[in-house]
Amino acid sequence: MISGVKLAPWLATIGLFLFWEAVCRLFSVPEFILPAPSQAIAALIQYWPAIWQNAFYTFWVTLVGFGLAVVFGLALGLVTGASALVYSAIYPMLVGFNSIPKVAIVPVLVVWFGIGTIPAILTAFTISFFPIVVNVATGLATLEPELRDVLRSLGARKIDILLKVGIPRSMPYFFASLKVAITLAFVGTVISETVAGNAGMGHLMLTASSSFRVPLVFAGLLVIAVMGVGMYAIFALVERRWVGWAFRGAETS
């Protein structure tokens, strides 16, 4: 049973690729419309030096943007969740800001900072910031009223309630949001590189598609997907390590 669950994602992924390969061959789909996985992988090998260089660039730009989002998201989430006043004051603003397509602000960032790394970092930051804030704030704001009563009737200070109960309690929400945020951060970086970049996977794929090297575009997409899955897996592991109690509790109930 357990081995079945562990094998399932690999089998499903391989199945998808086989299906995709079969469809392309069966209907002789031209490679400039939809290249088969084998063609994408061939392009990946052929252009590896360029892909590697751009992937590495995209990777660290994403990590910097994501790191900023973690620091500021955690801070704002704690402030928002700890105070009902701040929560009601800024929550609509956050929702509004999150509704803005991030591709629309890249040109503005370019006007401010010029083409290149900084707009990409800031786009990754703005897109991954929101889920962290919302999750941390939710974790703090949903403290059980009984528990709050227990603590208040002991004369506990707000800071004690926050440190002893609020923050530990919101940590599972925080780690869950990191998994979402890291994948979004890749989206942000690639958007910015595509719209206004001179390096990175977005820039590489835009250049490739404008010269109809579609297999290279798909090779790029695969690389981004692999980076996203890899980072997701790392944060899932960190989550299990740090807030395992949240999972063990759920398994027994």
Binding site: E146, L147, V165, M171, A246, G249
Partner: peptide, 8 residues
């Protein structure tokens, strides 16, 4: 009614 112990 709910024990509200801290799970961590």
């Amino acid at each position: 009614q709910n024990a509200t112990l801290l799970p961590w």
